[in-house]
C-alpha cells in the first residue's frame, strides 16, 4: 500500500524494483472559466494537505470504512493530479483515476482490472499529470469540487446517486521482466527526458464535477496489457472534505482560497501546453462528453451565472514535454 510523505501518496514496488518510486500529489490551481473555449494548462499553486482518514474519529463511519486519505478543498475549487517518480529509474506505472467511482478516462463505473478497449488508465511517465475528465481527443473538462448531494458531480449525473464522491486511484507497475527489457533498450533515454520535462454547503463531503474545457491529451498506452503486473496493484480512496470544515476536523488552519483565473490573467502569469511524443491521443469518453458542466448546472439551478465564467485573455502558452523542456510551473505561496 502507498505511504503518505510530504503530502504526497508514494507507491513503491519493492518486489519489482527496490529503487522504484512513484508519487501522486494533488495540486491547487485556479478554476478555468467554464465556457466553450479550450484553455491551456494553468499552473500549480502547491500541494493540498493530505491526512490519514483513520486519524479522525469524527469522520462519518462510511468514510472511515473506506480508509485512505482526506484532502480539504473549497466549493468550486479545482485541482490536478501531479505524477512523479524519482530515485532509481522511472518504472512505468498504469494509473486508474475515478471520481465518485466514475472512471475519468472512460466515464464507466470503476472496475479493478486494467482495460484496453477502451483504455481506462493513463501511463506514467508518458502522462505527467491529469487535470480532468477526458471528453474529446486532446480535450478534458477540469476537475472542480462541489458538495456531494447537490447534483453537480459527474457521479450524480451519470448514476443519479451521490454515494461515493472523492477520488479513487489505483497504480499498477510494469512487470519485472518487461521493466528489465525496457531498461536495457534505448527507449529509457526517451523516458528520462519525459520525466525531466515534468518536470456554505450542506455536506462536508465533496464530489468532482466537470469544469471548463482544457487542452490535455490522454496518451495511449505504448506497452501491452501483459506488460502490467496487475497482482501488484495498489489503490487508495481520497475523500474530498469541504475546506470550511477542515479546522473543526483536524485542528489545522483552514487552507486559503486560490486566486481566480481573472486575478491570474490580470497578473500576466504564464499558462502551459504539453507536447507529447506525437502519439495518438485517446478518443475521450462520449459518456463524459454528455455530462453538463458545473457552470451550466449552476445556471440552470439558480438562473444566475457561475462566478468566474467569463473568458480571460491568456498569452501564448509555455511549451512543455518531450519536445520542449521545463517542468509545469508550481508557484509556492499565494501571496503574489
Amino acid at each position: 500500500m502507498p505511504t503518505l510523505e510530504n503530502n504526497a501518496l508514494v507507491f513503491r514496488f519493492l518486489e519489482i524494483d527496490p529503487e522504484a518510486r512513484f508519487s501522486i500529489d494533488f495540486q491547487r490551481t485556479l478554476r478555468i472559466p467554464d465556457s466553450e473555449r479550450d484553455y491551456p494548462l494553468p499552473p500549480g499553486f502547491g500541494r493540498f494537505p493530505l491526512r490519514h482518514v483513520e486519524d479522525y474519529a469524527a469522520l462519518p463511519a462510511h468514510t472511515r470504512r473506506r480508509g485512505g486519505v482526506i484532502l480539504p478543498l473549497w466549493q468550486a475549487e479545482a485541482l490536478w493530479l501531479n505524477f512523479g517518480g524519482g530515485w532509481g529509474g522511472d518504472l512505468p506505472v498504469a494509473v486508474k483515476v475515478a471520481a465518485g467511482k466514475i472512471n475519468a478516462v472512460t466515464g464507466e463505473t470503476w472496475t479493478a482490472p486494467l482495460n484496453r478497449n477502451p483504455q481506462d488508465y493513463v501511463v506514467w511517465p508518458e502522462q505527467p499529470w491529469l487535470d480532468g475528465f477526458a471528453i474529446e481527443p486532446g480535450v478534458i473538462r477540469q476537475f472542480v469540487a462541489m458538495p456531494l448531494g447537490e447534483g453537480y458531480s459527474v457521479e450524480e449525473q451519470l448514476t443519479e446517486d451521490a454515494e461515493w464522491g472523492g477520488l479513487q486511484i489505483s497504480v499498477t507497475p510494469m512487470r519485472r521482466e518487461a521493466w528489465e527489457r525496457l531498461k536495457t533498450s534505448h527507449s529509457v533515454g526517451l523516458m528520462e527526458e519525459v520525466a525531466f520535462s515534468m518536470s456554505s454547503c450542506a455536506s462536508a463531503e465533496m464530489g468532482l464535477g466537470a469544469g471548463g474545457r482544457m487542452r490535455q491529451s490522454i496518451e495511449s498506452d505504448p506497452y501491452t496489457l501483459e506488460d502490467w503486473d496487475q497482482r501488484a496493484t495498489q489503490r487508495v480512496f481520497v475523500t474530498l472534505w469541504h475546506a470550511s470544515r477542515w479546522r473543526a476536523l483536524t485542528g489545522e488552519p483552514v487552507p486559503t482560497e486560490p486566486p481566480s483565473a481573472e486575478d491570474y490573467a490580470r497578473a500576466g502569469l504564464p499558462w502551459f501546453q504539453h507536447y507529447g511524443r506525437g502519439a495518438e491521443p485517446l478518443h475521450g469518453s462520449d459518456r463524459l462528453a454528455g455530462v453538463k458542466s458545473v457552470g451550466t448546472l449552476h445556471s440552470e439551478k439558480t438562473e444566475t451565472s457561475f462566478p468566474g465564467s467569463h473568458d480571460v485573455a491568456t498569452p501564448e502558452p509555455v511549451r512543455l514535454g518531450p519536445g520542449a523542456k521545463g517542468p509545469r510551473e508550481i508557484k509556492h505561496g499565494l501571496d503574489w
Binding site: M1, L14, H52, E54, G67, G68, F237
Partner: peptide, 17 residues
Amino acid sequence: PDHAVLRLVRDVADGDW
C-alpha cells in the same frame, strides 16, 4: 537497510469501497 525501515513506515489504509 532501507527496505526494512520502509516496513515501519505507516501505510495508507485501504478499506471497503
